[in-house]
């Protein structure tokens, strides 16, 4: 098991302004021009866990921060500061299954379009390899 990562552990904080209890990404695996992949292991004591189930707001926050970490990484590469991103809109969100504590979430972000300071992207999240949610989102930076 030798998976390449770009940022993980304490280092992820260089890409995201969020801190515990609402830091919802622990790894940035890869990032190119239009696609980035980030991950999170859901701990029992995660703020958004209820009775061992990782709930919808946690999942949506994880997706938003996956995109934010990816955008932050690209900004760092180009020598800029990491921007603070806000969710502008969640669209076409579909939940297949709620993840459980202990699951490894992996989210693939695909940038669809960027206009002014708004980035539109699509996202797919898997939990231990099974697709649990898809959506589109707009991040305002």
């Amino acid at each position: 098991m030798n998976v390449q990562t770009l940022f993980e552990g304490e280092n992820i904080k260089k890409l995201l302004p969020q801190r515990n209890p609402i830091l919802m990404v622990d790894t940035l695996y890869s990032a190119d021009d239009v696609e980035g992949v980030a991950g999170l292991t859901v701990q029992d004591d995660n703020f958004f866990c209820e009775d061992g189930i990782f709930t919808e707001p946690g999942l949506i926050e994880h997706i938003a921060q996956s995109a934010s970490a990816f955008v932050g990484y690209k900004a760092l590469q180009s020598g800029a500061d990491t921007p603070v991103g806000y969710i502008g809109e969640v669209k076409k969100f579909r939940l297949m299954k709620l993840p459980e504590a202990g699951n490894r979430l992996v989210t693939r972000i695909h940038i669809m379009s960027e206009v002014m300071n708004i980035t539109l992207f699509s996202a797919e999240t898997t939990a231990d390899g099974q697709v649990v949610a898809t959506c589109q989102m707009k991040l305002s930076v």
Partner: peptide
């Protein structure tokens, strides 16, 4: 400002073109 990006994405996917933000303005 939020839905402008929807229009751009729709045109990009319909006509397979890439549009920059400044061009739309």
């Amino acid at each position: 400002s939020l839905s402008l990006v929807d229009m751009v994405a729709l045109i990009e996917s319909t006509f397979s073109v890439k549009i920059k933000g400044q061009e739309v303005a």
